[in-house]
Design a protein around this nucleic acid. Structure first.
Length: 213
DNA sequence: TGCCAGGCCGGGT
DNA sequence: ACCCGGCATGGC
């Protein structure tokens, strides 16, 4: 993929929308929880679930490790798929507690792609969730691909509609310098653009900052 | 009312 | 190697 084109897109989005201040949420644990809860789900619903967790003072590894799956499911109900997501959250928390003594800081010593593989081994964590955790919770230079990224890029004929996740990620990352700040803002801006101009149906291209690329 | 949202898994071909 | 149903809430 062409580096200049990728940067042109980035600058257009940044000019149009400004900084997005991602991830919306405080600290690595809240970010990781949000990454799981937002799977195929509107962020507004995720916020309700996260507020429930805060209210119950359960938004930390020790509490999440202590409460039952069913108790957790009740708290995260507004985020949808609450039974599967409760299991996925427990699996993630158990992983961190088992492999890193419940200390997020201890994950720092693992090389990024090694850690990526280990996170992908957790049932319920796929590439987007894992990459979101790596980039936004752990500050690793990993580009997050999502449905909007594919839709936007394919509609601008920069990739195929059904492009493989890894394939698109590799193409993008091999064309850019590994810059956490850039990757952070770029993905957030793509989501912002997607919400306003590149939904599944009703693609209103009028006023889209990428017009005439 | 129906469709969509910052996916992923497991079972079937 | 694909393809698909299931998982579920809340907003427009």
């Amino acid at each position: 993929m062409n580096r200049d084109l990728l940067m042109e897109i980035y600058h257009r989005l940044y000019s149009a929308f400004g900084p997005q201040h991602w991830w919306p949420g405080d600290g690595p644990v809240e970010v990781m929880v949000g990454a799981v809860l937002t799977q195929n789900t509107n962020w507004a619903n995720v916020e309700k679930a996260i507020n429930n967790l805060k209210q119950a003072e359960c938004l930390d590894l020790a509490s999440l490790n202590r409460i039952s799956v069913d108790e957790l499911a009740v708290l995260i109900r507004p985020s949808g798929y609450y039974n599967v997501k409760a299991r996925r959250l427990k699996a993630l928390v158990e992983f961190i507690c088992r492999e890193f003594s419940c200390r997020v800081e201890d994950m720092e010593k693992v090389e990024t792609y090694k850690l990526r593989e280990r996170l992908l081994g957790i049932s319920g964590l796929g590439p987007e969730t894992v990459d979101s955790i790596l980039l936004y919770a752990l500050g690793r230079p990993i580009f997050v691909v999502d449905a909007y990224t594919k839709r936007i890029f394919s509609r601008h004929r920069l990739c195929f509609e059904d492009v493989d996740y890894q394939e698109l990620q590799c193409q993008i990352m091999s064309s850019l310098d590994p810059d956490v700040g850039l990757f952070n803002e770029y993905h957030a801006l793509l989501v912002r653009l997607g919400k306003e101009y590149c939904r599944k149906t009703n693609p209103n291209c009028l006023g889209c900052p990428l017009n005439g690329l």
